[in-house]
Amino acid sequence: MTSANVSNLQVGNAGDRQRAVEVVVPTHGRDVSGTIAAVDSRAASSSQSASLVKAEVRGLDFYYGKFHALKNLNLAIYDKKITALIGPSGCGKSTLLRCFNRMHDLYPDTKYSGEIVLHPDGLNLVGPGIDPITVRMRISMVFQKPNPFPKSIFENVAFGPRLRGIKGKDALEAEVQRALKGAALWEECKDRLQDNAYRLSGGQQQRLCIARALASDPEVILFDEPTSALDPVATLRIEELMRELREKVTIIVVTHNMHQASRVSDYTAFMYLGELVEYGETPQIFQRPKKTMTEEYISGRFG
């Protein structure tokens, strides 16, 4: 019975960084009832308040055929926080991310074992009897390369709501507008909603994909290296957007970019060869990693 003892440090607040704060990774912890930590509160580091846990990965193993890609992972994903998964290529971070919305089910010869429990209702995302579509209705995803559908901007965003049975022009329009505003794209394209999505720039396309993900009212959004195909300015806009979105949804982001992880995330998990090496608050991972391997990776000595 471990409660997730978390102290909220503000990234960039040098004074708070000095305090050693540990994220306890609950293995079988059920206590997720702690008060919601005041995000970004500068005084928060003194009060040992616990964040709400949105999802718990418990003893997760994943196999591509005979290849053991994820090995006994245990970690907690905190509600309305950004969790970054980092590690060298092939470490399993994308594989872990894609377990959350069961993308592996699209391909043959893949196997999950263990649990990913989604709170508050305790749905086991990778449970054998769970329909992947039920999971994907609650957990949305933004991909590495912007992948808008070859449809109009409006239809791209309306795709999710339509699948969820929202009909009628007014209801859809309201939903599309809300999502585009959420993705900071409304002002740029409110007059061209019927244009083909491919006429947008790369950065706009990625924000459109974020809008598309938002329109389905997800509880968690998975970002799979969302800025690796974008220029620095577009990258910053996406990062800014992610920090805004954190108010509303839980975010898990896979990134190859150390600076990105330290800039945007609240928690960082460092993975290597399918194992979780270290997991903690982002400032701690980047300032005072406990494992030598983490330190070496972060300082660019391998990877």
Partner: peptide, 17 residues
């Protein structure tokens, strides 16, 4: 491209959709 299919599935679409 596979990415378009994945995009649709990730939104919760069925195979037919």
């Amino acid at each position: 491209p596979k990415s378009l299919r994945e995009g649709a599935y990730a939104m919760g679409a069925t195979k037919f959709q």
